[in-house]
């Protein structure tokens, strides 16, 4: 690792994200979409669809993927890889602390 040290960011209470949906956050100049799966698990990926700039936080999700609302490109939430031939998303590590605050690592 070079200059960029690992940094953590407090995004806010997890309740800001309804179960089964995503919300977007501006983190250090990056746009990050954080999803709260029905299982309670959290996933975070870059929020802008590489295809045409679609807002991924508005996408439909299941336990594995998010679908971009603009042109239905599909991305794996765990790896960021697209199954519809697009460049991959950046994947972020995200969890909650003991107070239920979202902690994102960049």
């Amino acid at each position: 690792m070079s200059v960029d040290a690992v940094r953590t960011h407090r995004l806010g209470p997890v309740e800001e994200i309804p179960v089964g949906e995503g919300r977007a956050y501006a983190v250090d100049g990056h746009q990050v979409a954080v999803f709260r799966l029905r299982s309670g698990a959290l996933r975070a990926v870059s929020a802008v669809c590489p295809h045409a700039g679609g807002p991924l936080a508005d996408g439909l999700i299941d336990a594995k993927v998010v679908i971009c609302p603009l042109h239905q490109h599909v991305y794996d939430l765990a790896t960021g890889c697209s199954s519809t031939g697009q460049p991959p998303l950046r994947v972020y590590d995200v969890h909650t602390d003991d107070d239920g605050v979202l902690i994102l690592t960049t």
Binding site: E15, E16, I17, P18, E21, G22, R23, A24, Y25, A26, G29, Q31, A33, A47, V48, G53, P55, L56, A57, D58
Partner: peptide
Amino acid sequence: TVPGQFRTSLPLV
């Protein structure tokens, strides 16, 4: 109905 229902999804654009 839900928190942030009308929150922007592209905060930096």
